[in-house]
Design a protein around this nucleic acid. Structure first.
Lengths: 165, 165
DNA sequence: CGCGTTTACTTGAACTTTCAAATGATGCTT
DNA sequence: AAGCATCATTTGAAAGTTCAAGTAAACGCG
């Protein structure tokens, strides 16, 4: 521990400030865009779409709630509410986990699958149109690497624990 | 107009898929992180913090509602609700616009300014710790450029109008 | 076994965001 | 100056998210 309780904070340089502004601007714009696109074309927000995608890739289109929440990076509580809504739509069904009576499996129904298949092309087109058709291949690589570094620093359990370097 | 109604969609390449996954992962993690940090340290979500920042930079710490909404990239409705809440906290006050009786000015109060000043160092530290202390200067430049391109494609009015090419 | 702890998931209330509709002021246009 | 479209903002309800408990099953261990 050093002695200073709270040194003068290091503000952002001009380049960093600019990058940060651009980042916020671009990411909110994109998220809004995708949310609207999916709400319009598939009747659900982007996060819910992500849940269906996850389920569609899972072994028997089934996944434990906790695993699904982790993959989708949302809290279990949020997932519970979300699945309740998706269930009401008939796109997902809950099943008891045979091996663990506490557990639940979320199961993507056939109808849910159809909805997903119908929505996917438009969604990919939107992502493409906003991102990949505008970036050079080098930039795509750079973006991936930058995001990897970001996620690395935030990812695990200790995300908001004091940095114990 | 070509004849095809909906050609086979161009899916994402492996590199694109990977980049997209990384992007979603990293951006949601970061947004969650900042939201929690500000909720804990300043009692408000990231978006609200952004509103205070905007106001603090405006001429007499005052800004028209519509302008503020545009700068913060949120809808006017959302801004209305947000300002109502900030007003309840005593951090912002509404004033009638002298030149246009329909208009309202949002005014950052002294107390709001204090809250902002107290929250700013922690927020900058969080942004730095998650992003700028982990990226090389080149990467910061790349990120800014990538975001500029993204925003360019989404920005203006016609963002969600049918593409009328 | 018995008892405390952890794990899996849900619930309800408070809060935030979206969406559509309402209010009131401006400003053309005739 | 009256009428009508437009603009600035608000409102209320529905949808989504967070947060703090709550239930129930599984685990661990003396």
């Amino acid at each position: 521990m050093s002695t200073e309780p709270a040194a003068e904070p290091r503000w952002l340089s001009d380049e960093e400030q600019y990058a940060w502004q651009s980042y916020l601007h671009a990411t909110t714009l994109l998220e809004d865009h995708l949310d609207r696109q999916l709400q319009r074309d598939a009747g659900m927000p982007h996060v819910y779409y992500g849940l269906l995608v996850q389920l569609s890739r899972a072994p028997r289109r089934r996944m434990r709630m906790t695993e699904l929440a982790q993959n989708a990076k949302i809290t279990r509580s949020r997932l519970s509410h979300a699945v309740a809504r998706l269930e009401k739509n008939g796109w997902v069904r809950r099943e008891n986990c045979p091996s663990d009576k506490r557990g639940q499996l979320a199961h993507l129904t056939d109808e849910g699958m159809r909805v997903l298949e119908k929505a996917a092309p438009g969604h990919v087109a939107a992502v493409r149109g906003a991102l990949f058709d505008r970036l050079s291949p080098e930039q795509v690589g750079q973006l991936a690497e930058i995001c990897r570094v970001m996620a690395d620093g935030l990812q695990p359990k200790g995300a908001d624990l004091p940095w114990l370097r």
